[in-house]
Design a protein around this nucleic acid. Structure first.
Lengths: 107, 107
DNA sequence: CAAAACAAGTTTGTATTGCAAACTTGTTTT
DNA sequence: AAAACAAGTTTGCAATACAAACTTGTTTTG
């Protein structure tokens, strides 16, 4: 049996910056591409612009993504790239989750 | 490649009653025993009494656990049992997480 | 050409929530 | 009898997620 104490305390140590579903979705998409545009991210996740904007700002403040502001012709386009720290945080989070999930055989 | 759209929207559909780490820890412990006493749960998770109390109340309101109030001698002892709904919710949550985690080979 | 509609994000306001300090009710110790 | 302890609960507060409303600029239309 898994040691319940360490185990449940580990759950409480999950990185909340990543654990929040909106941000987890953002990071997951960013992890699968070089660079992702704001509007693409919005459509793919179905989030509102406001919500997406605040979450990407938080992820940037945490150092998990970089914001790239550019112009496509004359209209502004904001894009994002996951940082190395972001990738590491996501990987670490995945590891925490795996430790938490019952093993294959025991489902 | 996984379809990014369905995928990231699925993340946003995670059951938040279970997703919250404090409650996930509680449910996980409850799932591994018949009945668990308040103080045991508190020690094993390291949560404060107040926090534990409010989260168990939420889980009860959601129908995910039952609260059992009894006496040990003359002192009151509160215990909890996961309900069938709670077990199902936890299982469904695990399933959602598995779908979300990169596969073994791709780590 | 002026006005209205549209685009791309950001800021602000609100309602919810997680958390621990303080409280309550009762028991045991001094 | 008073003080200390136990087991939870309630209350107050700070942080957060979210969308509506706003801002700045561009394109379309009358």
């Amino acid at each position: 049996m898994r040691k319940n104490e360490n185990f449940s305390k580990a759950i409480l140590d999950l990185d909340r910056m990543v654990h929040e579903p909106a941000r987890l979705a953002i990071l997951t998409v960013l992890a699968s591409a070089e660079e992702v545009a704001f509007l693409f991210l919005q459509r793919i996740t179905g989030m509102s612009k406001g919500n997406l904007s605040t979450h990407t700002q938080k992820l940037e403040a945490a150092g998990y993504l970089d914001t790239v502001k550019a112009f496509q012709g004359r209209i502004p386009v904001t894009s994002f790239r996951i940082t190395e720290d972001g990738r590491l945080a996501l990987k670490a989070y995945h590891k925490q989750l795996r430790a938490l999930l019952p093993e294959e055989g025991k489902r």
